[in-house]
């Protein structure tokens, strides 16, 4: 269980997060929706220690992790699939996956997890010796997800996994998220594609300029008038 309590982040003079609180229960899919610049990415980046919060607390399974280094946080089972995928273009698909398992030393376990990733994404197996930079956008997203799974995450966080992908690929990515979650991994998802995100999520939060303005079950938010107007482009 991940709990964020009154988290604040400042970038220079900008107050990017103004005391947000949210929780991600074990085994759930939680989504954070909101417009560009609302602070979604900042939230994920603070959880994983890439951004130092100026106030508040992040608690993972009862232990405060805000203030720890990224390496320590990732080793505790929290992993981020960053916006824009950020795979390593000069490394092969297989090396990218091995890097996902960088913190692990159990060779047989790594091997079997790699087989699992290849089962989930047969396309990656076909291209396993190809450089990551030669993959298509959709394949790169699969690689980014596969790479994250190689660390055996307890909490998988995804930053805009659908960005720039064809609708069919988006559909597939969301299906995969559902599968990963069904196998026991907790998911925290942020998306501009609010409809797709709320359909897959158990619970959602709406973030506006650094504050949480609305929260509720995914289905309820989908039917909420304010959400429909602001994020689903309906009821002008």
């Amino acid at each position: 269980m991940l709990e964020i309590k009154k988290l604040s982040v400042h970038y220079g003079g900008i107050h990017a997060l103004q005391g947000i609180s949210l929780s991600v229960p074990d085994g759930s899919i939680v989504t954070l929706i909101g417009a560009n610049g609302a602070g979604k990415s900042t939230t994920l980046r603070s959880i994983v220690g890439l951004v130092k919060p100026s106030g508040g607390e992040i608690v993972w399974n009862g232990k405060t992790i805000s203030g720890q280094g990224t390496k320590e946080i990732v080793e505790q089972g929290i992993v981020l699939v960053p916006e824009g995928r950020r795979i390593f273009p000069n490394l092969t698909v297989e090396e990218n996956l091995f890097l996902g398992a960088y913190a692990r030393n159990d060779k047989p376990g790594i091997k079997s997890d790699m087989d699992r990733v290849y089962e989930l994404f047969p396309r990656l197996k076909e291209r396993r010796l190809q450089k990551g930079g030669t993959l298509s956008g959709g394949e790169q997203q699969m690689l980014a997800v596969g790479r994250a799974l190689m660390s055996r995450p307890k909490l998988l966080m995804m930053d805009e996994p659908s960005l720039g992908l064809a609708p069919l690929v988006v559909k597939m990515i969301f299906e995969i998220i559902r599968q990963i979650n069904a196998q026991g991994t907790t998911v925290l998802l942020i998306e501009q594609n609010a409809k797709a995100a709320l359909e897959v999520a158990h619970y959602g939060y709406v973030l506006e300029t650094g504050r949480i303005t609305l929260e509720g079950k995914g289905r309820d938010l989908l039917n909420d008038d304010r959400v429909r107007k602001a994020y689903l482009g309906e009821g002008q």
Binding site: L50, T70, P82, L91, Y102, R147
Partner: peptide, 23 residues
């Protein structure tokens, strides 16, 4: 080697390498 792989990763993207728990 694993360290060499991490070196190549860090040389293209330091932040993404951090996310892989690379020191």
């Amino acid at each position: 080697t694993k360290t060499g792989m991490a070196m190549r990763a860090v040389s293209t993207d330091i932040e993404a390498s951090r996310l892989m728990a690379v020191d």
